[in-house]
Design a protein around this nucleic acid. Structure first.
Length: 622
DNA sequence: CTAGGGTTAG
């Protein structure tokens, strides 16, 4: 794009002027429009000079354009100077000036101009108020927002669609969805934008209450004579969860010709994401394959879908295809998505390659990326690299970074290190969240640090006002149970502030099995099966326990109960990649052609481990 | 003939 000097452009106008005369003011407006389009300060200044030359600086149209032009060039102050020299300031001029400051992020000055305007002769109009509502929303101060909105009512401007829409959006941004809905309810006329704010409000507020509202929303919109557009649907899709409404929306898109032919990438991404979240990754893939164009968002959504549904190999293939076929380089988020795949593949190499790539592309300074990297190294067994990323790499550590390190240590049985990291985090004044708490507690549990774990639990409640989640409680039960403190564990379960769930009873059961408390065991199984009558794992576990104590009649009863209920448990399996071939094994599986050799080695390793264990115990007791 | 609202993902 070549730069055209203003003077040359004006000359060109003079040349054409022989054929058709062009007003100097029209020529200047065109110049300014070009300046706005190109964001050229130079062209703006040249036009300004020409305006002064031709004495057009009182022309309201030209001056308005000039102020916009300065604002687009990040010079709202220059606009203010121009504004000051205009004798008759009309409402357009005021609005333009205020808007210029808003666009440059100078919210406070915009408010100051607004109050100056209110004291003057020129009254603020609907345009002024919509702008100020937006600013209040961006500031996030509901007090200011209510003040501005209140002023709209005196003049009846509040009923204007755009003003009301801005007010709704303002309340939403200030965190008051109900004020937003109140405005919506009282609007005499609504349009698509009004509905889009409401939909967004639902999207921001919780999930479950929304589900019932989603289908109603469609009907109500239809009754209002408004059809959902791309924005409406892509805000709606992420909150559908597994409700099945996602499919309803998809079919609506397919049926509406304008929507399906728009081939909007954003909408496609939302669909891919929605189906992935529903666990229907195959459908997601079909949507993905039929998209007309795919950007990095689309590719990442699909990769993420595969990773979160456990199709690691597909994710890796797609990660390569994105770069080879479409020439799209991965960005921060693509890397964060693929990193968990590296840890599942149990190969440190892939993760290290991503780490190296991120450093070359300078993508490694992002907190979320560093956090994923730490997690990946821990999962691949490299405590050392994980620590190195945490300590040496230059990124802003958030509570997730600390939590990753804490649970990483826990994973490897390094309870003391986890505790040390936890208290260091508190020392830095960082608030722990539920994930942190669970990380510390599970670390304590695995390392037998019962007293320490209880201390942490009480610190979280008393000093940080946390309300332990079900998982956190399950960790406590697990910790007490593993240490053999069955009475305390049961006592904890019975005095929990929330209703104990399956995970809590499950933890108690494990402890009972390990320490042979058949009385508590019976109680726990009773509750667990009552809570989750459809979970096959519970029956299998119960039957195994009974088999151990040779209660064959109970075993048979449990097995028939499962059959009657039509429950089947998919057996767990493990696998390993050797020379690009995957070998998988079930429990006591003898199918593999190297079975004999494998079991021989396994026996050898177990006896070695037992010896080490004994040594370890001896060391602890002396 | 000038100015305003909804949002933008993984």
């Amino acid at each position: 794009m070549s730069f055209i000097p203003a003077t040359k452009l004006l000359l060109r106008y003079s040349a054409t002027a022989t054929a058709t005369y062009v007003e100097p003011s029209t020529a200047l407006i065109h110049c300014l429009e070009l300046a706005i389009e190109r964001q050229s300060l130079k062209l703006t200044q040249q036009s300004h000079a020409q305006i002064m030359c031709w004495k057009l600086h009182q022309n309201p149209f030209i001056v308005t354009k000039l102020i916009i032009s300065y604002a687009t060039c990040q010079n709202p102050g220059q606009g203010k100077v121009v504004f000051g020299s205009v004798r008759e300031k009309n409402v357009y001029l005021w609005n333009t000036l205020i808007n210029g400051y808003v666009r440059n992020g100078e919210h406070e000055y915009a408010f100051q101009l607004f109050s100056e305007m209110c004291e003057g002769i020129v009254c603020p109009d609907d345009f002024t108020f919509s702008t100020l509502c937006k600013v209040s929303g961006e500031v996030g101060d509901i007090g200011v927002g209510k003040y501005v909105h209140g002023k709209c009512f005196r003049t009846g401007i509040a009923l204007d669609v755009v003003v009301a829409n801005s007010a709704m959006s303002m309340y939403l941004k200030c965190g008051s969805f109900c004020d937003s809905l109140k405005v919506f309810d009282e609007m005499p006329v609504r349009n698509l934008s009004s509905w889009n704010v409401v939909v967004n409000g639902y999207a921001l507020s919780g999930e479950l209450e929304t589900i019932a509202t989603v289908s109603r929303l469609f009907r109500l919109m239809d009754m209002d004579g408004v059809r959902p557009n791309v924005y409406t649907l892509s805000s709606l899709l992420p909150i559908c969860g597994k409700s099945g409404y996602g499919r309803v929306i998809h079919s609506y898109i397919v049926r509406s010709e304008d929507l399906s032919s728009s081939s909007d990438v954003h909408l496609g991404c939302s669909l891919v994401d929605m189906y992935s979240r529903c666990g229907e990754v195959w459908v997601a893939r079909q949507v993905f394959d039929r998209m007309e164009s795919r950007n990095v968002f689309a590719w990442t959504a699909m990769i993420n879908g595969y990773v979160s549904n456990g199709h690691i190999d597909e994710a890796v293939i797609l990660f390569r295809e994105m770069q080879i076929r479409d020439g799209i380089p991965p960005n921060k988020v693509s890397l964060v998505s693929i990193l968990p795949a590296c840890s599942s593949l149990a190969g440190l190499i892939g993760g290290k390659q991503i780490h190296g790539y991120s450093m070359r592309r300078m993508l490694n300074s992002a907190t979320s990326f560093a956090n994923a990297l730490i997690d990946m190294y821990f999962r691949c067994g490299s405590i050392c690299y994980a620590q190195r990323v945490f300590e040496n790499e230059n990124f802003l550590k958030d509570s997730i970074s600390w939590s990753s390190v804490i649970s990483g240590f826990g994973m490897h049985g390094r309870g003391r290190d986890a505790m040390y990291t936890f208290y260091k985090m508190l020392g830095y004044g960082i608030r722990p969240d539920m994930i942190t708490l669970i990380g510390v507690l599970s670390a304590c549990s695995r390392s037998g640090l019962v007293k320490e774990g209880i201390d942490v639990y009480h610190t979280a409640i008393n000093e940080y006002g946390m309300k332990p989640s079900l998982e956190a409680c399950a960790c406590m039960v697990d910790m007490l149970g593993r240490a053999g403190q069955l009475k305390d564990a049961l006592d904890f379960v019975q005095h929990m502030s929330i209703k104990p769930g399956p995970s809590v009873w499950g933890a108690l059961i494990n402890a009972c099995i390990a320490y042979g408390d058949s009385e508590t065991l019976e109680l726990a199984y009773g509750v667990l099966i009552h809570l989750e009558p459809e979970n096959p794992s519970n029956y299998v576990s119960l039957s195994n326990v009974c088999a151990l104590s040779r209660k064959w009649d109970v075993v048979a009863k449990v097995r028939t109960m499962m059959k009657v209920k039509g429950l089947r448990k998919t057996p767990g399996l493990s696998w390993i990649d050797v020379n690009n071939q995957t070998h998988h094994f079930y429990v006591a599986d003898k199918q593999h052609y190297c079975s004999e050799l494998i079991y021989e080695l396994l026996d050898h390793l177990s006896s070695m481990m037992k010896r080490v264990h004994i040594d370890f115990d001896l060391m602890n007791f002396t």
